[in-house]
Amino acid sequence: MSKQTKNVQLNFQTTEEAQQLFGANDRFLKLLSDHAGIELSARGTELRVSGDEVKVIAVQKTLQEILKRIQHGQDIQERDYLYFYDFITSKKEEQVDELYNYNIAKSARGKKLFAKSQTQQQYVEAINQEDLVFGVGPAGTGKTFLAVVCAVQALRNNQVKRIVLTRPALEAGENLGFLPGDMKEKVDPYLRPLYDGLYEMLGAEQTARLLERGVIEVAPLAFMRGRTLNESFVILDEAQNTTDEQMKMFLTRLGSSSKMVVTGDITQIDLPHNRTSGLKTALHLLRNVKGINITEFTNADVVRHPLVQRILEQYEKAEAKK
């Protein structure tokens, strides 16, 4: 393989763009350099890239593509550098271009939110098309956050009249009633990941107003019994900790003009060993039912720090050995 050293001039419009692209103390460049196995250094707005010719060209394209996204107001994170590079080296540039132009929504601060993987894009499309969607996979894949984003979009577009958020409060067991505060305050700690999405999309003040008016409702799963949820966008989070009875009860709450999204990770079941996960059973029974979509995320879809993906891989290897 031929080695090459290349000076790359990037077309920055502001110095802030260079800071965004390179990261604090050039941390994004170091990340990409380690991942690609090349030498990469910055001087002002110019880059010096040394290594295998094919990799040097791929790194150059990666940084040019990411800069283009930064200039279009996209939120670029560490993991995107690796994702872009891997797409480009596998000659899937058209797919990455399509992916990073797939605008899902705008945040409360006006930031454009984009799919971070092809699975995320498929998941959002499924939520928009189907009335019942399961998002299943490891932590950090965005399945809960994207469900909330889609729920807020549906509310904004008057497709639904309210958002209902629920989660099995397994850790609280039968002691939920003894916790201080009203019902919202009792279950809030269990719904924090859902609130993160609401705050991103609506801001803290509007989220509080909608909660007060009942447009957004939070409730433990047990409180769904006996209800029919019409004109609602309903999200069940941490569904791997439901029992078969709870899952059946929840799914049959679906009313007219409503959507349901069920999220969970079947490798993180906290139920007693003698109880079957309702999520596992539902995935087995409903996989081929018309009108139901099951989107399965993998470690490759993890959008947190790149270390999270490697941590998950090591745990999977350990589990496989057992």
Rank of each mutant, 00 (worst) to 15 (best):
V152H: 07
G177L: 04
L32F: 09
D182H: 15
T242H: 01
V289Y: 11
T14E: 08
E17N: 06
K111G: 01
R27E: 11
M201C: 03
L155D: 07
A318K: 14
N274H: 13
T62Y: 00
T281K: 15
R225T: 02
M247D: 06
N175W: 13
Y81N: 09
L312V: 08
H72E: 13
E316N: 13
I266R: 11
E185G: 04
G203P: 04
K186P: 00
P220G: 01
L198P: 00
Y190L: 06
I66W: 04
L271D: 01
G226Y: 10
R156L: 10
A282M: 07
D188M: 10
L113A: 00
A172F: 11
E185A: 13
N288T: 08
S90A: 13
Y190F: 12
N158F: 12
M1N: 11
F84A: 12
G255R: 01
F297Y: 02
F233L: 05
F134E: 06
F22T: 04
A219M: 10
K280E: 15
L198H: 05
L32C: 01
K92W: 07
M260A: 12
F134A: 04
T89Q: 10
E212M: 11
I311W: 09
L31I: 10
Q309L: 14
V96A: 04
K111Q: 13
R167Q: 03
Q121P: 00
F134V: 02
L251M: 13
T252E: 09
I216Y: 06
M260P: 04
A318V: 07
R310I: 04
K91T: 11
I294V: 13
H72A: 14
E98M: 10
A282R: 05
R253H: 05
A115S: 11
T281E: 13
R167P: 06
Y81L: 09
D182M: 10
K248W: 04
Y199E: 12
L229T: 06
N25I: 03
L194Q: 01
T207D: 08
K186T: 00
I66E: 07
L198I: 01
A18K: 10
G226M: 03
A222L: 02
E231T: 11
V133T: 01
V160H: 07
I38M: 10
I88R: 08
T166D: 03
E78F: 09
Q118P: 06
E231Q: 15
L113V: 05
G181P: 07
T276K: 14
A115V: 08
K6E: 11
E174W: 07
R310G: 05
M183I: 08
N241R: 02
N7G: 00
V148R: 02
S258K: 12
A42V: 14
R209G: 00
K280I: 15
R213V: 00
Q20Y: 05
K259D: 00
R69I: 02
T267C: 00
T295Q: 14
A208P: 00
E174I: 05
T276C: 10
E53R: 15
G197A: 03
F250N: 08
R27C: 14
S2F: 12
V289M: 12
